[in-house]
Design a binder for these strands. Sequence first.
DNA 1: GCATTTATTTGCGTATGCATTAATGAATGC
DNA 2: GCATTCATTAATGCATACGCAAATAAATGC
Lengths: 225, 225
Amino acid sequence: MKDQGAKPKSNSQRAIGQLRQMIFSGDLSAGSDHLESELADRLGMSRTPVREAALTLESQGLLELRPRKGVRILPVSPEDMSEIYDVLTELESLAAEQAAGMAYDDADLMVLATAIEDMDDALSRDDLQAWADADDRFHAELVRLGGNSRVASIVGMMADQVRRARATTLFMRPLPTQSNEDHRSVLEAIRTGQQDTARLRHRAHRQQAKQIIIDLLKKHRLSRL
Amino acid sequence: MKDQGAKPKSNSQRAIGQLRQMIFSGDLSAGSDHLESELADRLGMSRTPVREAALTLESQGLLELRPRKGVRILPVSPEDMSEIYDVLTELESLAAEQAAGMAYDDADLMVLATAIEDMDDALSRDDLQAWADADDRFHAELVRLGGNSRVASIVGMMADQVRRARATTLFMRPLPTQSNEDHRSVLEAIRTGQQDTARLRHRAHRQQAKQIIIDLLKKHRLSRL
DNA sequence: GCATTTATTTGCGTATGCATTAATGAATGC
DNA sequence: GCATTCATTAATGCATACGCAAATAAATGC
């Protein structure tokens, strides 16, 4: 996830960041309801900026404002995950294809290469959280290189949701060694400018990832995260 | 475009609708700046709901809030259009593929079929606006049939932007007869459950549409809409 | 005891006012 | 004449207040 500059000077921006944090950390659990005034108290500000933040997060699909019921933290069902992964698959594959068409040199692709190495390192240390972070960096950089700002922003939002699900499933899944090979092969296709190959490889990669996570969610009856 | 239920009871919702309308109609021209208080006066309400509406529209990419400069109606450049069409192409193609996999019967596909007929009628009457409206209905229904609500909502937002550009270019372009054939062939693929074909045909359709509109924008030096 | 109506509470939508801070212009020094 | 500093203006971001409508509780009728 983006660092957000780390200094959001307005209360409204701060509220967005803090609420996101609280959702990801489970402090605000999925399905729970919270009054605007309660959240305002909790964040030490008035309802106005909280309300604005909630509106923003609603547009990003993290919560929902239900008049008189409070803001509801939206649970993520396996069906939601399926939808999200399908969108990610399409848009990231496009990004991979476009990135491959841009004749990037090794310096441009450094971030991708580094992310892959970091994933290898993390795996060898069994540090799944570090692996997940590097994986995020890889995917974020990929869409950046794709050059379509709308794709990048949509993917960024959806990735937030994936993170929520992954926080739960990360430690149930087999070590993602296959995933690393996938990343390498995508990078290679981008480096050598093979647009169709990049697209297809990334597409396959994402579809597999989808299957793994969906199976896990279903297997463990994790119908709502 | 969706009818929006026609009864947004809150001022906030009303503001969203009215501002959208004003943007599409050119009442608020691209690139222009407007103070929150000015818009509030114009809509006959206080700044609060206007501000909330502006926040929402900002998240949809129609405008931008620049502190102390007012809300700026975002212009749509050919580059923006290119980005938008690429996203639409990917996501609608996915929708077409998924729709084809759902074994819809003729009743389910009625809306699509009707939209196509309406487009034919409109063309025969040289009624381009009616054609555009029916085209909108076709694409909206397609993503609905695809069954991925996130795809539907993203496409809906992007379609808003396309409408803006099309309002300008609609009367410069050749009659979209090819487009109608495309629609028919996509529908046929969906009806017969040919997922890959549906995807590929729709993809080709959208890519062609992109090329046409981009060329028009560039040819007429319409760098900002 | 159950249903229906009435009263009460409570959270939201909106209006309003104020303080902060960026932008504009004036004034001063060089 | 130009740049720099300071004063002024003005729009925002936010706090606060209030009325309304929905939800809940109480009360009444059957």
